[in-house]
Design a binder for these strands. Sequence first.
DNA 1: ATTCAGGTGCGAG
DNA 2: CTCGCACCTGAA
Length: 291
Amino acid sequence: MNEPGAARPVRLAGPLDLAHTLQGGQAFRWRREEGDAFLGAIGARLVRLAQVGETVEAIGAPRAALARYFRLEPADAQRRERLARDPVLAPAIRALPGLRMLRQDPWETTVAFLTSANNNVPRIELIMRALARAHGEALSEHDFAFPAPEHLARVSETRLRAAGLGYRAPFLREAARAVARGDVDLAALRGASRDEARASLVALPGVGPKVADCIALFALDVDDAFPVDRWVLRAMEEAFSRAFTLKDCAGFARERWGNDAGLAQQYLFHAARMRAAAPGVARVKMPPMKG
DNA sequence: ATTCAGGTGCGAG
DNA sequence: CTCGCACCTGAA
């Protein structure tokens, strides 16, 4: 069990906004502490992150692991600069320069978004924490590593249901078995093309096109993946004053933003959710998603 | 009580 | 291949 207080903090250059990056729909297991600090696991390490102005102080993992997780690389900064020149995205990027794409563990991300289908964020968080608590290695009294596919493959459907999976329990069990067997090699998909990643991931039960794009974007460096949910669809229709279907939405986005489409999606998603949650503003009910 | 939540699997046309 | 529908669960 590694104590995050044992090492000297690592300073991560900004702009890096922890709240919006860690709680913006990519990750589901970070716990917010008093003030602007977050506690969670990166792999088997217990990490504590503190927002210090635009930058972050991290304890519990070496710089390399943190830089990998937060994608602190030149390509990421260039991506943001390119998108900021698009008038459709400029306001959102100006308002939230510290929103970053994460490079998360592929298996944990698979489970998170398999769980996300027909579900809401608070319950996804609940389920992910329950799974880690019940089946993951303890890193502290309240923090756990996420259980490996080999481990979850041996957990009964009943116990998975007890974690709150509901009807997704058999999906998760079968997906875990498929990954443990090596039918789908998640690590090998990193950096693959979007079509290649999607084709492999969709073979997992409970993983359809939308969930596959989420896994590809949030864990596998597939930067042109453009997951389309009702929020993004609505945001795209508002931004471009036209109707989209689920199918042509992503195609349009990739034509406009190319390899930067994934980050564009994150800003569109986040901006739409912020608007919906804005206090004092009439809550706009999302229309049912057709098609 | 009904509805809804970052969709997916399934059977029918 | 497209379309419609059911689906654990709990919070509003």
